[in-house]
Amino acid sequence: MIIERGKMKDGNEYILVNPESLIEELKNLKENGYNYLVLMSAVDYLKYREVVYHLSSYNEEKMVVVKVRTSDDVLPSATVLWDSANWFEREIYDLMGIKFNGHPDLKRIFLPEGWVGHPLRKDYDISKEQFVNMNDDGTDRVSFDPKDGW
C-alpha cells in the first residue's frame, strides 16, 4: 500500500510504503523494468528509522525511490529479489541495527561481533572507545578497557 508520493530535491520520484507491502511493491517495480537495486540506505529520524531503496534499470534511463519506515527496527528482507540486498542489509544491520526477516546470514559486516551499539544511530556515543582483541578460539572480544585491546 502506498502511503505517500512525492518528489525529492534531485527530481527523483519517491513512494512511501508500509512494511507489510514492501516486498510486493519492490517486486512489482522489478517486473516493470526496475531491475537494478542501486542503493539501500538507512536514516535515523530518532522517532523512527527510514530505509530508502534507490531503484534503477540496466536497460532504460529511469530511477525511482522506495521508502519504508519502521519504529521497532524489523523489516522484511529483499534478498528474495536481489542478491546484492544481502550485503546491503548486513551493512544496515551492522551500522543502524535494523533486523531483516528472512535474511540468510544476518551478521555484522564491518565491525567485529560483540561490538556494543550501532554507530550510525543518532544516540550512539562516539566518545566511548571500544577495544578489540581475540579470544583463544579465534572469535572477537570487545571491551571498554584500553588494556584489553591489541
Partner: peptide, 11 residues
C-alpha cells in the same frame, strides 16, 4: 570478510 579498514566515513 571485510571491515579491516573501516573508518565509518558516513558517521
Amino acid at each position: 570478510i571485510i571491515g579491516y579498514l573501516h573508518r565509518n566515513a558516513e558517521k
